[in-house]
């Protein structure tokens, strides 16, 4: 029997510059560990996230994508995270329509003061994705090296 290699998922995290990216920095400042599978992309606000970016990530082989923004009501740009929330709700229904496990994509609100929450969220998300296994449905094999 072939021994399966430990599955190390690729996880993309989009973080808004003002809250969640700072929250991620804070978890670094406090040396709170979370898996290296998570790679963060900085965007000015969660409302900058075009759902296309998420689909692109899945197409390119990401196993999970998470969007982190300021808590509702705390957006640096007043209302951006409300837009993000609505857009993500639409994306979730589309993903479930496509038969993609909805757990592969997540939205979390993490403030600049919540370093511990950021790390906990990432630990949990990576554990979820590891359990789900590889994203095979949306990955575009043509994009593979």
């Amino acid at each position: 029997m072939q021994v399966e290699k430990n599955f190390e998922p690729t996880v993309v995290a989009f973080c808004c510059n003002w809250c969640s990216y700072a929250g991620a920095d804070l978890s670094g400042n406090n040396r709170i560990q979370y898996p290296a599978n998570v790679k963060i992309i900085r965007i000015p606000c969660s409302c900058r996230l075009n759902p296309m970016f998420i689909l692109r990530a899945f197409q390119r082989g990401a196993d999970g994508v998470i969007l982190c923004g300021c808590h509702p009501g705390d957006c640096h740009y007043t209302s951006g995270n409300y837009f993000a929330r609505r857009r993500m709700t639409l994306l979730f229904s589309m993903l479930s329509f496509l038969g993609i496990e909805k757990e592969r994509c997540r939205v979390e609100w993490v403030s600049a003061a919540e370093g511990a929450k950021f790390a906990a969220t990432m630990n949990d998300f990576v554990a979820t994705i590891t359990r789900l296994g590889e994203n095979k449905k949306l990955e575009d094999l043509r994009c593979k090296k």
Binding site: V12, I41, R48, N50, R56, R60, G61, A62
Partner: peptide, 16 residues
């Protein structure tokens, strides 16, 4: 500074 193509490029680089 955060154009569609720039963010997509970052996504691609991470998912490679």
């Amino acid at each position: 500074g955060f154009s569609n193509s720039q963010i997509m490029a970052e996504v691609d680089a991470i998912c490679k």
